[in-house]
């Protein structure tokens, strides 16, 4: 299992564990977040959702569409 710290756009922080080989898209789905509504970034860089989860910390940013 991979342990990861997740900070959501509301500022909530949580630690979760996901199986080795999981991608960020499945992580979001496990968290109950629609992947179409957010981007994920780590170390100030956006990560592709089909990339495998690595240990550490990620932040989840809401995609906002208003103007």
């Amino acid at each position: 299992m991979i342990k990861i710290k997740v900070t959501t756009f509301s500022g909530d922080e949580k630690y979760i564990e996901v199986p080795e080989g999981s991608d960020y898209e499945s992580l979001l789905i496990d968290l109950g977040i629609n992947p179409e509504t957010v981007i994920v970034y780590r170390d100030q860089q956006v990560v592709p959702l089909d990339e495998c989860v690595e240990p550490g910390e990620i932040k989840i940013l809401r995609v906002v569409s208003g103007g």
């Binding site: 629609n34 992947p35 179409e36 509504t37 981007i39 956006v46 959702l49 995609v63 906002v64 569409s65 208003g66």
Partner: peptide, 14 residues
């Protein structure tokens, strides 16, 4: 590249 998917349409607060 930054936002690959369109979020669902919404009546947004602002």
């Amino acid at each position: 590249c930054i936002f690959p998917e369109s979020p669902p349409p919404t009546r947004f607060p602002v």
